[in-house]
């Protein structure tokens, strides 16, 4: 029992649950809840992106595109023109994104390294341009308002209630990912990152696993897009844009690739940092860029894996 608790898997999950429960004691107002919610949203997307980047070794610089499709589908389908129920809209959007990801995954996942980065980046930018241009449907650059979320007659009201919704989603996704990583599929995934050729020789169907993870993480991004659209009550093309994609991948890499808790740490830092640097005014970008560079230069494996290694060495 205690051994199990001490395994990083269960231990980390419990620590996360504890943190989620304790945190609200420190919140003084809804703005703090709002920041926490943004962390949770980004963390959940980053975790799914991390499965792709960290474990399957596939770069995606276009994940915000999937997030945006989810958000906009929910906004449009639950809006006055269609009037769908939020849950149906969310699932349909996610399925549609899954199909889209499946269709493009064939040619895209054949690509390697920078070519793959370019292709996913292009895909994301095309999605963002469509969203900005088709203003009869999407409201264009000024955005679109979104109906509130109702699931089975329940509707989260206010930041404090939404906080629990997103925390449950976050914890569920951590649990899912940890299980996935420990499963045979997970071992196959790690093999893909390690050496694709070696994995193939050992009989792992690498294409199948890469496709599976790509589709799954795209669908996850779409779901989170839908949820966050309902939470904000407003969507703008920024959420589907290039910068958001870069932000998501930065969370993964900064926190630590192939580390579920690294993705969460990355999300925490990249969400809190801009809020803390506001006092610097003109110097904000300089400091932000510097922090990003220095962290990656001195901890190329990312924060969590580097610190964990140090920690273990210290204990031994």
């Amino acid at each position: 029992m205690f051994e199990k608790l001490n395994s990083p898997r269960t231990g980390g999950l419990l620590a996360l649950i504890l943190a989620v429960l304790i945190l609200p004691l420190f919140f003084q107002n809804t703005f703090h809840y709002d920041v926490a919610i943004h962390v949770a949203i980004s963390a959940t997307v980053a975790i799914s992106l991390n499965l792709l980047v960290g474990y399957a070794g596939q770069i995606s610089l276009g994940h915000a595109g999937f997030f945006g499709v989810g958000a906009y589908s929910s906004a449009i389908l639950t809006g006055w023109d269609f009037g769908w129920s939020p849950i149906t809209a969310m699932l349909v959007a996610s399925l549609a994104v899954g199909v889209l990801a499946l269709v493009v995954s064939g040619p895209i996942l054949r690509l390697k390294g920078h070519y793959l980065a370019m292709a996913t980046l292009g895909l994301g930018i095309i999605i963002a341009i469509v969203i900005t241009t088709e203003d009869w449907l999407t409201g264009g650059p000024d955005g679109l308002s979104v109906e509130p979320l109702t699931i089975f007659g329940l509707s989260p009201q206010g930041e404090a209630q939404w906080y629990w919704v997103f925390c449950v989603v976050l914890i569920a996704s951590v649990w899912l990912s940890l299980n996935l990583i420990d499963s045979p599929v997970g071992r196959a995934m790690r093999a893909v990152h390690g050496s694709e050729v070696a994995a193939q020789v050992a009989g792992v169907d690498t294409t199948y696993f890469k496709t599976l993870i790509f589709v799954m993480s795209a669908m996850f991004a779409s779901l989170m897009g839908s949820l966050s659209a309902h939470y904000s009550g407003f969507v703008t093309p920024d959420i589907a844009g290039f910068h958001h994609s870069i932000e998501l991948i930065t969370m993964v890499v900064l926190g630590g690739m192939a580390s579920v808790f690294g993705a969460i740490t990355g999300a925490v830092i990249l969400t809190l940092l801009p809020q803390m640097l506001t006092g610097l005014e003109d110097w904000e970008m300089v400091i932000f860029g510097l922090i990003l560079m220095l962290t990656m230069i001195f901890m190329p494996k990312g924060l969590v894996p580097t610190l964990l290694t140090k920690f273990r060495r210290g204990e031994a």
Partner: peptide, 16 residues
Amino acid sequence: GNAQKARTFVKRLIES
């Protein structure tokens, strides 16, 4: 110029 950032900052202005 980012509308999503604007939302967070306005919450901060109002609430915090």
